[in-house]
């Protein structure tokens, strides 16, 4: 059973997710940890990882952003063919992705990884891709993706979700409908509620009952 939800339905996934090879702890130490993001202490891919990443020769692939950056020439033709997607780690900068590509909408799919579901950076990355950089194609959430976060993901601009392998995508569909009338403007509904709907103004009569004491407490 497919784990991919696109919009409101479970569908077959045509894309292959390419991941970096896991590095042995020792190798990483020999190579020296390259901390590219001091504040959050995230670790960049090593050159061994980048060279060692296997990309299938055919079919649609979603490659790590670090691979796209390092092996661009090799991937250009697939970008032209519309069979290349890119995925971002939650600590990678959406601005770097934008400046690495002429037209962001050349990518049929961008995926954002949630290393743990409590890592909320992906919501801001998605929001920026949609509202600031005009990305119109499929935006998918990958990684630790669980049904209880889907509503917020959709509101932040995701329209595809790869539910974690041990959970059912069909069950998760229900959570996309958790709330029917959100307050604030976000990606899916940009207008806040007060711009969408005429809300009632204060009716003094509604408060009157509280002003008149009901029971005597002497």
């Amino acid at each position: 059973m497919s784990k991919l939800i696109v919009d409101n339905a479970v569908v077959t996934d045509e894309w292959t997710l390419v991941t970096l090879p896991v590095v042995e702890e020792e190798v990483r130490k020999q190579a020296g940890k390259v901390v590219i993001f001091k504040l959050t202490g995230e670790v960049a891919a090593t050159s061994e990882q980048i060279a060692g990443t296997l990309i299938p020769d055919n079919g649609k692939v979603i490659v790590p952003f670090s691979i796209w950056q390092a092996r661009k020439t090799e991937l250009e033709s697939r970008l032209e063919a519309g069979t290349l997607g890119i995925w971002l780690e939650s600590f990678e900068l959406v601005e770097d992705l934008i400046s690495s590509i002429t037209d962001i909408n050349q990518l049929p799919v961008i995926a954002i990884n949630f290393p743990r579901f409590i890592d909320g950076r992906g919501y801001s990355l998605a929001t920026l891709l949609r509202t600031r950089y005009g990305f119109r194609n499929q935006l998918r959430a990958i990684g630790d993706v669980l049904r209880d976060q889907l509503f917020y993901m959709r509101r932040s601009g995701f329209n595809a979700y790869v539910i974690r392998a041990d959970r059912s995508a069909a069950d998760a569909l229900a959570s996309l409908r958790d709330f029917s009338e959100p307050y604030q403007g976000a990606v899916d509904i940009p207008q806040p509620v007060w711009r969408r709907i005429a809300r009632p103004s204060y009716q003094p009569s509604r408060g009157a009952a509280m002003i008149t004491p009901v029971d005597d407490i002497d």
Binding site: F117, I118, D119, G120, Y123, S124, T127, Q149, F151, Y152, M153, R154, R155, S156, F179, P182, Y183, Q184, A186, V187, P192
Partner: peptide, 10 residues
């Protein structure tokens, strides 16, 4: 505005 803010729940 802050209730169920989708971007800032985590």
């Amino acid at each position: 505005w802050s209730t169920f803010h989708p971007e800032f729940a985590y």
